[in-house]
Amino acid sequence: MATIELKNVHAEVAEGDEQILHGVDLEVKSGEIHALMGPNGSGKSTTSKVIAGHPAYDVTEGDILLHLEADDFDGIDEIPESARTWDLLELEPNERAALGVFLAFQYPAEIEGVTMTNFLRTALNAKLEERDELLFGEDEDEDEDDEADAGYETSPMEGPADEGEVGVAEFQQLLSEKMELLDMDAKFAQRYLNAGFSGGEKKQNEVLQAAILEPTIAVLDEIDSGLDIDRLQDVADGINALRDEQGTGVLQITHYQRILDYVEPDTVHIMLDGEIAMEGGPELAEKLEDKGYDWVREQVYNAA
């Protein structure tokens, strides 16, 4: 059982001093689905970005912690006690990802020249390698150092993309299984990452990546925007599978009630002006659909 915990998180834009988050408190555990709703500009996307470590935002106050239990990672018998609580703000984005924090982007990057297969296998192997390093401190002298001074000294040819833990054939198998599950055309595997993908294909691809990387906590930023109903169903199936089969804790940022019919949340959080203003069960989302954010504002304002 893993838990991500946001405690009184304040954040501002790194260049400039515009404060966006004014003390966010939020907790998501393995196997739970949380919806994070709120009007434009309320801080939902910023919340997702500070969790993942986007360099454009500075967290000025508060904590983001990841709590793990001994058996949270498949394939690792026991996570050492000293490596069960992580201050994510101390970690690089790739290290957070290695510990299983996954962000599905609202606007996924288009990367030409890098095929999906190559990218995802590299990512999976990087995740496994980095995770081992974080948990057990292995390989300190080898790969990390190479990475750090990946400079201009004469370094021996490394040959084609290093094999890593998951080999090409094994990965192909895994990828085609996951793509089938999401009803994605096999040809996507050889296309360049998101390059020329439609909006819906990009969103589907985000869920595919989550399925491959098997995150502990997945933050899905408007994964439901721009999807037609068939694809929404595929994406929802993918999210439910993450929760049901991998025990992923899901924080789903959305504008719309629609996806919540397919992915039923345990908890709904409503964000206003950089804070969680209201929380409740799935019925809160329906109420919100009826009454709108002005109602939330009134409630909060009157209560205060």
Binding site: P55, A97, L213
Partner: peptide
């Protein structure tokens, strides 16, 4: 950032982007 968010270390991500370029 997108690539780092997929666990790829910064330098490796840059290299992939350059080779892809």
């Amino acid at each position: 950032f997108y690539m780092e968010g997929r666990a790829i270390p910064e330098q490796a991500a840059k290299n992939m982007l350059v080779e892809g370029f």
